[in-house]
Design a protein around this nucleic acid. Structure first.
Lengths: 240, 240
DNA sequence: CCAAAAGTGTTGACTTTACACCCATGC
DNA sequence: GCATGGGTGTAAAGTCAACACTTTTGG
């Protein structure tokens, strides 16, 4: 029996007992939905842990980069093309405790992503995925070690927001400063002073006025801004 | 043929053509040696890339955590017990481009470590490993994508030093402020003002005076300090 | 004219940087 | 007594946090 076939058979039986660990990829996909910082989860339909919520993921395919595997899984679960604008992704961490999955030793490389809710709503089949506010996760049972993974991803997402311009991935191309402030407050679950927030963001030089105002509301129209193209990324994020 | 045997045979032939990627672990081990910020490398003895320098690493063993695999490799290459004091380790990144290793698709989870030079010199067999100043790496040929991995590790190491007390892993239990400053200057390759450095370190409250001075030099004896035990780690570093 | 969100400056506290001289010791 | 690294303070600049009122619009 070839390795490939032995592998497939074991996989379909839910058993992994290879002498080398199996590599998987799991995705923590964040969005802002109905004013809440949310994560995308799917329901497990089979054992083990059937009925619990899990991160979208899959076995890593040979011959493709980690990123390509990420894109595949994202496409399969949400129908989103990761290379379009509006998707920020970054490798999070690799988890490899032998006991983390009862089927055998599965090492998972995790990524987190921040996706504009419009994009998600347009393409994703909401019957297949659940979009759960991070603050409500304690009310749900999560499969495997996925609660821990989400907790870590949330923390990293917060750091990222504070010193980069990731927020642009979740906003329309043009946005008001209030909308931007709202993203920060939702993700970091902490209020910001309006004046200080504006001063700080503007002094960073990462956004600029468009000159256009938003006349759609029934209140005073807000000036719309856009992100300058120059990168303010402080860290090397993607290498592989 | 069992997967295990097929795997072993392919591995000994230097060929990996499984339908799932093989998982490996590579270590970037930093130390300060002769006043330079150095990385530990080994010479490749077989093809591919024989003769070049590479990071110590190995195929990930099933049934053991990533950390346990780290410890094994460290022990094998340097004879250091990773759980003793004087070793700081942290997961760096996972690299998985299909073309990064000519033998097949090998995904590597990398860790970096900061090891006291005394510990390294005491146990490691210096005939088997090379301790190379990071600043001199461009003069050497490195195997695979290891140069890139080291560059990324160096960057992370710098961030770590700036906002945590990792430095303690490379110093003796008691040290002078000048020694501490020297670690910072060596790793970050940038000079610090003596008065400002002292003020800042002392105001952080991570070290305290021991009351003992170092009378071994032929100059004015320096006050020796030690790290307080309380942690000042800002991020969750190790989860798995 | 009222409700609602947009927009705008100043002050005090704190942090960061720049900078130069005396001290204790071994030889 | 001199060479060497150890040790110390202050002022100016910049950053951060707190805080309240006016403006513009639609209804």
């Amino acid at each position: 029996m070839s390795i490939s076939n032995e592998f497939k058979e074991r996989y379909s039986n839910g058993i992994f007992n290879l002498s080398i660990p199996v590599l998987a990829l799991d995705l923590v996909i964040f969005t802002i939905y109905q004013n809440e910082f949310c994560v995308l989860l799917v329901e497990r339909t089979r054992e083990p842990e059937a009925g619990k919520l899990m991160l979208p993921g899959g076995i890593m395919k040979s011959g493709h980069s980690l990123e390509a595997n990420f894109d595949d899984i994202l496409k399969r679960r949400t129908n989103i093309d990761a290379n379009e604008a509006g998707v920020y992704k970054e490798q999070l961490y690799s988890f490899g405790e032998p006991g983390r999955d009862p089927r055998g030793h599965i090492v998972t490389v995790t990524y987190y992503a921040f996706v504009a809710k419009d994009r998600l709503l347009k393409t994703a089949d909401l019957a297949k995925v659940r979009i759960i506010p991070v603050s409500k996760l304690p009310e749900f049972e999560l499969a495997f070690d996925h609660a821990r993974i989400i907790a870590y991803a949330k923390e990293r997402m917060g750091y990222k927001l504070e010193y980069t311009d990731v927020a642009k991935n979740i906003l329309s191309e043009r946005f008001s400063l209030s909308e931007l402030q709202h993203v920060y407050e939702t993700v970091l679950s902490r209020p910001f002073d309006k004046r200080n927030f504006r001063k700080k963001i503007l002094s960073l030089g990462i956004i600029r006025e468009t000159g256009v105002t938003d006349k759609s509301g029934s209140k005073r129209p807000a000036m719309l801004y856009e992100f300058s193209n120059r990168k303010r990324e402080l860290r090397i994020v993607e290498i592989a």
